[in-house]
Design a protein around this nucleic acid. Structure first.
Length: 257
DNA sequence: GCCCAGGAGTGTG
DNA sequence: CACACTCATGGG
């Protein structure tokens, strides 16, 4: 795929937590090969969407979504940034999550360009006090982040990168502030396990509305694994964005079932 | 002023 | 196993 065709895709429909990341475009980094390489990894540029779409189109509901939700991509967020971001994200809303994560970056990260700050490394964030984190608007999540910085380090995260999905999920579930949903988000977006299927309130709604599927997290997770298999993460992304769109303005790529 | 938000932790039946 | 309750705080 030519570089130019990527421009604006992140802004349109890919999953982003930080508003600053929406300004990324491959063209802007044409002279910086390292930055360009990072961006292409972030965009999961090497994913074979034809194969993924073909597999997921075996499900008629997802097939309709794929044909109508143009340009959707799943992104690969750096592991540490992803872990912290999703612990912060619990029981909040997208707009506020963006503000909280950007607040943490502004307070503890490095300046990379004018007002733009990088996400703080583990070493940088572990210097943050609970009070400072509360000051970033994290509320009760502040103590989770503080504890998280004292439970794991860069070495632990590197080791996690070598684990298969189920084992990684078990490890993540033992960390402060990480339960079923966050463990699956981190497995998917932060470690690239495409079979992970995070179930939040929107996905729960979509599964009930489109498939009549209800029940516990474990039960719904089993349903998704059987139905969507190794690319369940992509199916989740289509279901999520479609469900949000339905509630936002009534437009829905999937027909009511 | 109310309910909800890309839930997790803890306690109880 | 399933529920019920609490946790800070902002968005709508």
């Amino acid at each position: 795929m030519a570089d130019g065709s990527w421009k604006g895709i992140v802004d349109r429909d890919a999953f982003v937590l930080r508003p600053s990341a929406r300004h990324l475009s491959v063209e802007a980094y044409s002279d910086d090969h390292e930055a360009k390489s990072r961006l292409l990894k972030y965009l999961r540029a090497s994913d074979d969407l034809k194969t993924i779409h073909a597999r997921l189109s075996e499900d008629e509901v997802i097939a309709r979504g794929i044909s109508r939700v143009d340009g959707l991509r799943l992104v690969r967020i750096p592991s540490w940034e992803c872990i912290v971001s999703y612990v912060i994200a619990t029981n909040s809303n997208v707009k506020r999550i963006s503000r909280m994560v950007d607040g943490v970056a502004t307070r503890f990260g490095d300046i990379v360009h004018e007002e733009l700050h990088s996400f703080p490394s583990w070493k940088q964030l572990r210097e943050a006090s609970v009070e400072e984190l509360v000051g970033c608007g994290l509320g009760y999540r502040a103590k989770h982040i503080h504890a998280l910085c004292r439970t794991i380090d860069d070495g632990v995260i590197d080791r996690m990168g070598a684990l298969p999905y189920e084992e990684l999920r078990r490890e993540l579930r033992q960390l402060p502030g990480i339960g079923d949903k966050v463990a699956d988000c981190v497995s998917l977006f932060g470690f690239g396990h495409l079979e992970a299927f995070p179930i939040d309130v929107w996905i729960e709604r979509a599964l009930k509305r489109l498939y009549g599927a209800t029940g516990s997290y474990a039960k719904l997770r089993g349903f998704a694994a059987r139905r969507f298999g190794e690319y369940a993460g992509y199916a989740q992304e289509y279901l999520y964005h479609n469900e949000r769109r339905l509630y936002k303005d009534g437009r829905c790529a999937f027909s009511q079932v």
